[in-house]
Simulated assay, not measured.
Amino acid sequence: MINLRISSLLLCLSLTGLVGCQTIKTAPSIPANSNVPSAEQFKITGKIGVRTPKQNGSAFYGWTQVGDQFAIDLTGALGIGQTSIRGQAGDVTLTSSKTGTIKAETPEELLFKATGWQAPITHLISWVNGQAVTSSAKVEKDAQGRNESIQEGGWSATLHYENESAKYPNKLNLIDDAQENRVTLTIQSRE
């Protein structure tokens, strides 16, 4: 039993590096809104990784989205410590012990201010539900008729599904058009 615990601890330490053995088990709370379509409301948890030409980072996350209002908690937070992001269209705030409070108009601007990284955060709202954001997106479907690849907004998203009957993707691989920035989002739970 002790050897199993030691092995588990060593495995956790070796796999997670800077992130640590913590995970976020629940998404933060935002009151549901019956006026917002169910496709625009979700609670997900998982892990996000970002790779740029200059650096890499990852974090565990809990994300609640209700229309244009969202709350995201990050642990291991992409090099900026435990982090809380709250906002709605035009008003986004990031708070962490390392950066203090940072405000921006968009999640993308906020991420860039905090880390210097670029990622299509606004597009992710649709992509985690397996949908394109715009009608001009280039979309490829899988054998089940689900969106498997979406190209729009300067990014290519590859959506992976747990099995043939899964309605929503459980992993997204994102690459910008210049192929310099990569984001991997794994969804471990969804409500």
Rank of each mutant, 00 (worst) to 15 (best):
D177W: 11
Y168A: 06
T122F: 00
G87N: 06
G62Q: 02
N3W: 10
K138T: 13
Q151S: 13
K47F: 02
I24D: 03
I187R: 02
G67A: 07
L9I: 07
C21E: 09
T93H: 15
G81S: 03
K113I: 04
L10Q: 09
S8N: 12
S14W: 06
T99I: 08
P169T: 09
K54T: 13
G49W: 04
V50G: 01
G17C: 05
L124K: 04
A132F: 02
T101A: 11
S156E: 12
E180D: 12
I44D: 03
G57A: 14
T186P: 00
I175T: 15
Q55P: 00
W127K: 07
Q131N: 12
I125M: 10
T186F: 14
G130N: 03
L110I: 10
A89H: 12
S135C: 00
N56V: 08
T64R: 13
T93F: 03
L185T: 04
T23M: 04
V92H: 10
Q65H: 05
P28N: 11
L94I: 08
A143D: 14
E148K: 14
A59M: 10
I121P: 03
W117A: 07
V92A: 11
P31T: 12
C12D: 10
A178E: 14
G79A: 11
F60A: 14
S189V: 00
T186A: 13
C12E: 15
P53S: 08
G81L: 01
T45E: 05
G67P: 05
N181H: 14
I175V: 14
V92C: 08
L11H: 13
D91Q: 15
K25M: 05
I85E: 03
K138V: 12
I24P: 03
T99N: 10
I80E: 01
G130I: 08
I121C: 03
S8C: 10
T52M: 06
A166N: 03
G76P: 01
T158A: 15
A157G: 08
K25I: 06
G154E: 04
